[in-house]
Each structure stands twice: as C-alpha cells, then as structure tokens.
Write a protein that binds this DNA or RNA. Structure first.
Lengths: 243, 243
DNA sequence: AAGTGGTCTAGACCACTAT
DNA sequence: TAGTGGTCTAGACCACTTC
C-alpha cells in the first residue's frame, strides 16, 4: 500500500485548497474553470474533478451561470464525520498533540453481536484492544477493537499496539481497511467509561458501533468507541440527495 | 425549483440501481464500463459518473484491474446520514406510514445561540415551529425550527404548516434550502421531550443542532431535533479521506 | 450578448488484476 | 497478455446568470 504519485486532480485540489485558506481569492470568488485550466496547464475536466471534491467537502460552492465561490461556513468544519480515518488525525486537525494509551490487549471468545458482525462463529477467538486517545493529556475517545484471532499472522507486538488501527491491521494481518459501516448510538457513560474519560458518570455521550471492511468486502474489525462530547463534537454537511 | 429533466447520468444511475436491487447481476459482478457504455448507448464518462455516485452511496465497489461489484452490506443502509433531506422521506424508506403533528407555532425573541447562527440581532423576532414526526402512530422525531420573522413574506397558513420544512420555506419565504451544517450532540431527554416521544425520562438520545443555508449561503433556519434511537438509528459509511 | 458552470462525447494512455 | 478500472485530454453544446 505504498503506491502512486498524487494524481493531477489531487495536486490541483491541494493547490486550490491552499489558496482558498490563504485567502488568495478576492471576495471569495474563484476564477472560472476555463481560466484555471489555462493557468495550470491542465484540461477543464481535471479542474472540474478537483472542484467537485472541494465542493463535496464543503470548501466551495458553485452556482451555474454565476461562478465558483469560497464557502466560509464549510471551511470551519474540522471533524467531518465521513472523512474520519484515525482519531490521531482528527485531534491533530483540532490543533492538539494526540497521544494513545493502550489500556489492555487480550483474547476472548466472541459473543453476539460481535461474532455475527465479523462473520465468525460465536465462541470463536477474537483479539480485543482497549485504547484511550488523548489530546494534550485530556482523554477524548475510548475505543474497543475486536479482530478475529484467525486473521493474526504473527504475535502481537505490545510495543507496536499503539499505532493506528489500520496500520496495525496491515502489519499483523495483511489486511487493508477500505471503509467503515458505522452506527451512531446515544448512550450514557457507565462508571468505568466515565472514569476513563474523566467525566461524571451518566454523562450523555455519542457511541460509534462500527464494522471495518477490507477491499475484498470482508469484515476485519468490530469497533465500539465512546466520545467526550465537550472536547470532540461531530459535524457534517447534509445535502439534498442526488445533489 | 421545477427545472430540468433527469440527466443521462441520473438515468443510468437509476437504471443500474434497479438492476442491482433486483439481483440482475450474477455473483454481484457488474459488466465492465466499456460494455455498459455500448449497451446503453452512452459514453464511458457518463457510465463512470453514474458508477461513481453508486460507489459513493455504498451500493457498489470497484477494484482496479478486476471489475465492479455489488456491495451487499452497503445496500442494507437505509437512513444514510448525509442524504437526509426530510424526515418524511426517511420514514418512508423504513417502510412506515409517516405523519406529522404540529405541536405549536409562535413568534418569540431570538436568544443566543440562535440569533448568532441565523445572523440576526439578539432579540430579533423568529418564528418557532415545534413538530412531531410519527411513523405508524409511533413518535420518532421531535423538532424545533426557528426562522427569522423578517423572511416571512406572507402570513403563516396553519393548514400548510405540516408540509416539509423546505417546502414551507419555499412557499412562505421564497428561500430554497441548499444544505445543512449539522452538529451531532448526545443528550438525555427531559421530562417533556420524553413524554412527547413516548419514552422514559432521561433516556439517552441523539440531538441534531443544525443551520440550514440557502443557495446564497445565507442562514435561513436553525433546527434542533431529537430522535428516538430505538426506532431510528443513523448509519453512515466512512472512507479514507480523499478516496 | 458574454461568460459561467453542467453535461456529454470519443478517444488516449496508464496501473492493476487475472490467468 | 488480455481485460479492467483510473486518469486525462480537447472539444462540443446547453442552461443559467449577469450586465
């Protein structure tokens, strides 16, 4: 998973994003697609692909016949729900120094619904990792990851268990996380969870119940995560379907 | 907002989606892009645009060099967070008969943070609508919508207040909702909210705090919504950023 | 009327997967 | 090596906004 130099589209997107955040565009107006294509020496299609991605993530908006503009409210979103890949990166975006504590690694027999979600028999062995993510020493996320033990191709190196989950899966299972299917569940934190996150018991919190799939569409990990709402709030942009 | 016949891409997307859910494709393998283009008599670009959308919404996945395939787990998602536009539609997707109760319409002075979110002065008049959405007589969503009174171009017709919010805004304010900027907040329901939703007080719930913008990027509505988690659970697909 | 984004075409070449 | 999806080009026409 080392492959490919950035595509032209990616480079154009990054270039435009830089200029947008730097405030290069007067009154939020971005040059026309034809003009950008000529300036950057690429085809209009490439420009359009890059602009579409920027629009998708809320950085710009387009008005047919009028032009393309910087989207100020959209620019302020940091933790965009659909784009979360590792909590380390989320916290860096917040401007904090992230760190991880591995609270426990053990093997246990899978119970439902975990077994079913992972496509293994109930009672099958899973590796459970409990981790706490902190930003500037403040605990923010408490997660439990369950991986079928059968996927492990080597012994778990405790010194390497603090790496991001996708890296752990690549190193130990030769599996590459392609996407998560996530459910958002409201909970109140129990005494243990609240203690770990440093808040009062019964504090309301968001919980993610999710299944991570690899490129072959096989479930490889079942995660449960609890978030401290006062430190990490999720935002997203909702659009009319099909737009 | 009546415009345009479905684009070719939209038609291709709808056509393929039909065949996918009908199970037309053996072993989940979808014909190659070249083949689809020839069959449907459109360019490969059009096919690719349609496939990209289907991939985006999780219905299919593509593997370079291998082919395009039906994504079974992704197909099962009904309430995809990013695509919610009206709760009526969400409930129809669930297979229930939706209905709406308007619990109250009144004018009040805007307080923070509502005034700031709507870009008006604190104390400015807003119209507050309290609504309850039900599926098969079971309450599922409790929402409060705040609209600056200055935007109202005609008196509010109580008989028409049960229409979806975007329709209400078009009819009364000539404003067209373009997107929502949403925050996901964990709460426990207070006595009144729990009573309206038919659950025990202090039940944990998801709350959406959101600002609706029109095409000119002006905030037009500030919404707060509470959901019954046992009846409506949100799901989403999370991918690596930039993929 | 001029300029913008929206859609679509036809074709090229590359990277990757299968066999 | 043949076939697939990934990227990119150059150009056409349309719908819409703006002046």
């Amino acid at each position: 998973m080392i492959t490919r130099s950035p595509s032209l589209t990616d480079q154009v997107k990054a270039h435009l994003k830089e200029r947008i955040v730097a405030g290069d565009f007067e009154e939020g107006r971005i040059p026309s697609e034809t003009e950008l294509a000529a300036d950057l020496g690429v085809s209009r299609t490439t420009i359009r692909d890059a602009l579409s991605r920027l629009e998708q993530e809320g950085s710009i908006y387009r008005k047919q016949g009028a032009g393309t503009f910087v989207n100020v409210p959209g620019l302020q979103i940091k933790s965009r729900l659909e784009e979360i890949w590792s909590y380390e990166e989320v916290m860096e975006d917040h401007g904090y120094t992230p760190s991880v504590q591995v609270l426990g690694i053990e093997r246990e027999a899978a119970i439902e619904p975990f077994a079913g979600d992972l496509g293994i028999e109930p009672g099958g062995e899973v590796l459970v990792m409990e981790k706490l993510f902190l930003e500037d020493a403040l605990p923010v996320v408490l997660t439990y990851n369950r991986i079928p033990a059968a996927y492990l191709q080597k012994d778990v190196d405790p010194d390497r268990s603090d790496q991001p989950l996708y890296a752990f899966l690549e190193a130990h299972c030769d599996r590459y996380l392609a996407y998560y299917l996530s459910e958002i569940v409201p909970v109140v934190l129990d005494a243990y969870q609240a203690d770990q996150l440093g808040v009062a018991p019964n504090t309301p919190a968001i919980c993610f119940e999710e299944i991570g799939f690899d490129q072959e569409n096989t479930p490889v990990v079942r995660s449960t995560s609890y978030f401290r709402d006062d430190l990490l709030r999720f935002r997203l942009i909702r659009r009319k379907a099909g737009a």
